[in-house]
Amino acid sequence: MLSVKDLHASYGSIKALHGIDLEVNEGELVALLGTNGAGKSTTLKAISGVLRPVVGSVRFADEEIANKKPEAIVKKGISLVPEGREIFTSLTVAENLRLGAFSSYQRSRYQKDLEEMFALFPILEERLNQPGGQLSGGEQQQLAIARALMSHPKLIMLDEPSLGLSPALVDQIFELVSALRDRGSTVLLVEQNAERALKIADRAYVLKNGRIKFSGSPQQLESELDLASVYFGGEEGKGEVTV
């Protein structure tokens, strides 16, 4: 479904991605792991068109989408839940959700979609007419995910959805992400919480310094690689892993 080949990206003169290869098949939940600064968010930004120009190929549903505008990419069915939630703080919860549906709005299904979101995130219904900025961090995260789902994405990309949430909420978010996959969505998940992410992922990639250092099943990853090194950026444990 999504196929990234030899993707290079930079911020001005600073190169952040040095040739990423990555596949996400339809119906899969793929985890993208790595230390701080490894290039996880950059990868998602490059795929979603926020960071341009990039060098390399990004194919989605058999169409080249590299260097297309973000508004065009979301129309094709890729929705990003950005790092740090990026809620519209001065807009109400209802208005945030309405914009989420902007790219694929259909009057006939809008109300039904809203009710589906309220079933997933009851708090949003209670706060419907409050500004997004008045929500707590966890509530904002729920709003950010709901907002992305409102566009009926074929592929949803989540950038650290559990960051800064209480343990109970983290559980809830991970349950939700695996529920998304179970109901047929395709998910690309960036996480700091590697252990939790690997529990629900079908496949995983590990990024380091802008390069893919590992790809494979969660079981392979756990046996071949010292998780702590993936995560805390320490020395690589059990020998060099090559892809």
């Binding site: 926020v50 519209f88 566009s151």
Partner: peptide, 14 residues
């Protein structure tokens, strides 16, 4: 109003 708040994120909405 969204664009005045967060321009890039507004584009991510389409």
């Amino acid at each position: 109003r969204a664009a005045a708040d967060k321009f890039t994120t507004t584009r991510l909405m389409g």
